[in-house]
Design a protein around this nucleic acid. Structure first.
Lengths: 241, 241
DNA sequence: CTTGGCCGTAGACGATTGTATACCTCTTCC
DNA sequence: GGAAGAGGTATACAATCGTCTACGGCCAAG
């Protein structure tokens, strides 16, 4: 009814002013989604305003918000998986070699160290990429089937990475690939809860970290004990904590 | 027909077709949120339209969408907890009595039955209240801190119920209250994933149900094995599956 | 030099939104 | 029987929305 000449003001810009177009829009969307609402509920103009761009610029890069979401997921999940893989490679080369790979006590001790390191790794990552992580979890249960599926896939991929890692590095006795794969998925999913707790309750971080470690170890311990309780008892292993 | 302060509903049953105002708005919001978007992103007019009411009627009952969300949560979480409690009371009175409560084999067999029944119970509930459940999970990770907190509390309450139930009915050897409480929270949270899988993949329901049962048993088994591997081995118990 | 993609801007449109004000119809209570 | 108030409706308005069309720089290929 009235002229639209109202100021689409060059608002205070949170995203990097240097990055161009596409990237600025993605960062702006993430920023808004983290503080305001879900990705799908964002307004085209809202995002453009936050990015300091003209509303129509959105059309140059994305057809809709699902497309933007997928681009963000692609970019960040790549960073995440690579980061996980890289940091996971480190302890394997460090002083964690087993003196006697057949010694179950040694193997279990190493497993504890690896679990501790891996949990710390995940919690560090989510702390560093807080907004992206929170939005990711949100959209994993969100209203867009496309984003839901993509994010589930990310989780499953990470679970598969973890499976390969455990199989290759730990060689826990008696556990088959399928056992490890199942446990990995359970762990990855549960970690989403631990991670959110971790972010939201900074004063309880040490406790949450220990709970997470304990959960992982408990699952492995239970799986081993389920397969061979006698051998486990005879090995003299003790559950930590 | 209705007065103000104090009591609300003359009937526990609230049929969809012709319920009064408030209820129609809540149901309309649920319906829209399940198919369209997140609760917080719904429009006031949108909901009123779906409910077949004038937009301004919304104001008569709710100040904002958080308030509507809380009302929905209140109503449905009450149904859920009561339903869980009631159906959980059943097997306790049925033929599941222990011949010898001190017999670990008997106790473990009963534990398996209770776990099976409880998992079935949860999966049945989410199937029956699909839309409400999906929206609930969505808002648990959603953008409104108020609804997030309320839904976390619901989960924790259910976990507490489960703790009391396990302590009272099962009396698994060697597990302290805190152990059971921790396991309960882990189980309840993991069940959110199992439940969503269950809803989204009807063709794999039996498999998902078994996975869920196995997860619960694995946690208890692991916890017992962590406390006393020797006793567990000596008892002659076998892990099912 | 010209052509054609990109990338970004400008202005305008119709639709929809949240909300404010006012009016109407029932109960319920004194 | 009159007051109070809750539930529901009608109308109106400014703001914001998504989208359309048109315009202008930039850079590489012809």
């Amino acid at each position: 009814m009235k002229k639209d000449s109202g100021e689409e003001k060059p608002r205070a810009r949170a995203p990097s002013p240097l990055a161009s177009g596409r990237q600025r829009l993605m960062e702006a969307a993430l920023q808004l989604a983290a503080t305001t609402r879900s990705l799908a509920s964002l307004g085209l103009r809202e995002v453009a305003r936050q990015a300091g761009l003209n509303p129509n610029t959105f059309y140059r890069h994305f057809a809709d918000f699902d497309e933007l979401g997928l681009a963000v997921i692609d970019q960040l999940s790549g960073q995440l998986r690579e980061g996980l893989r890289e940091r996971r490679r480190r302890p394997a080369e460090a002083g964690l070699k087993l003196d006697d790979p057949a010694d179950p006590v040694e193997a279990w001790r190493k497993a504890q160290d690896v679990v501790r390191e891996s949990v710390a790794l995940v919690l560090d990552f989510v702390t560093e990429h807080r907004t992206a992580y929170v939005v990711g979890i949100r959209e994993m249960h969100g209203s867009s089937p496309v984003l839901r599926k993509a994010l589930r896939q990310v989780l499953d991929d990470i679970g598969q990475d973890m499976t390969e890692d455990v199989l290759g590095a730990l060689q826990l006795p008696l556990l088959q690939r399928e056992d490890v794969a199942e446990i990995s998925q359970l762990v990855i999913r549960q970690m989403t809860f631990f991670s959110l707790d971790y972010l939201e309750h900074p004063e309880q971080r040490e406790q949450i970290r220990r709970q997470a470690e304990r959960f992982v170890l408990l699952l492995f311990w239970g799986a081993i004990a389920a397969k061979a309780p006698q051998e486990l008892a005879a090995s003299g292993l003790r559950f930590p904590g």
